[in-house]
Nucleic acid binder design. Structure first.
Lengths: 189, 189
DNA sequence: AAGGGGTGTTGACAAATGTCAACGTTTTAA
DNA sequence: TTAAAACGTTGACATTTGTCAACACCCCTT
């Protein structure tokens, strides 16, 4: 699965990335079953994951112990509790495989080693951060400016893959509405 | 006002930042009146701003042309449409001074020049990104997991300064609720 | 001092969304 | 393969939140 990561990086930084093979060999392949937790709230998130295949849910529990989904991340993207990873703090969120996943994982020590020894690697990290941030910005704007119905339409327009491949329950939680409301509003479109 | 920025950077990177004075002289001081727009949706955001004093509102318009507030940023923090700035794209958001502000601005060309010539400067940028991202994460989690009342309580606990110094109208828009609902729920606490 | 615009609060009502329950369907696990 | 569990939909009703209007208040400006 390393070839997917190689391609991911080359697409973004060009074909001439010095030290690329050193970077690639540092990642370990992990196979995760559907439903398995990759990061648990309260524990330290000391890896960053490249998703070679599958789909991860990033969530917290609300007052009634429902899972409320902050993000859904699919293959060819990065996922981690970056705040926990960067600050060596306990994770404030959980990360769960909602499909069987193949992840390429790098631990904190190796990560910082690469940051110092491979000049281009910090560009990789910056791009992960920028992409995660941009994603968050759009998401907040949907919450402050759109109704539930319009958030559904937004999701259909901008992340149509999610609608078809994930359970209604998960999508509803991602949109911040109940499963029943989601079912009813969907029928209206 | 440059001394505030110097202190901001030294607090985060230590007192021995090589090239720090080169960095500082690159910033231009801008005085902004209350109500003035710093960044306009559709135009390019080609500066990053350090807020020496005052307060900025980052917002978009909803379908009814109400301002819906994605973020509120106070002094000793950074503000920009980072997506527009980084990608040289039109800004998707507006930024407005909700108090008289003193900003320290750096334009894109100077910014990238510093990134290449001052080794530590990209750490500054990374910290801006990380802080912005962390802030977004918490904010999304309040929307997916909390009711309007609990979002108000969250704001009182985690950003109490905002409650006392900003108008109710602005806070309500930041919380994603109407002014009237905000007024009523406040009375319940 | 007087007028005007924005703000904050409150009431009455409407609209949106949540909760609980029921039921058929699909998926999972033994 | 079969039983159990989870899922998706729908109905009835409760709760939350929004909208519109009125009004008092404050801060401007003139």
């Amino acid at each position: 699965m390393i070839h997917l990561l190689r391609q991911h990086i080359q697409t973004r930084l060009g074909n001439d990335v010095s030290g690329l093979e050193d970077v690639l060999t540092t990642f370990k392949e992990r196979h995760i079953k559907r439903g398995e937790l990759v990061v648990r709230q309260g524990e330290n998130c000391d890896h960053v994951y490249y998703i070679a295949s599958g789909c991860l849910q990033v969530f917290v529990y609300d007052a009634d112990v429902n899972e409320t989904t902050r993000d859904i991340v699919i293959e060819d993207n990065w996922c981690a509790d970056l705040i926990s990873f960067g600050g060596s703090q306990p994770a404030t969120e959980n990360i769960k495989a909602v499909e069987p996943c193949i992840l390429l994982a790098i631990n904190r020590a190796d990560f910082y080693h690469l940051m110092q020894t491979v000049p281009q690697f910090d560009k990789v990290y910056r791009q992960i951060l920028e992409a995660s941030y941009a994603n968050s910005v759009y998401r907040i704007n949907t919450f402050v400016s759109l109704s539930a119905l319009d958030r559904i339409k937004w999701l259909m327009d901008y992340r149509p893959k999610l609608m078809s491949r994930l359970s209604s329950k998960l999508i509803a939680s991602y949109l911040g509405i109940s499963q029943e409301t989601f079912s009813r509003l969907k029928a209206k479109i």
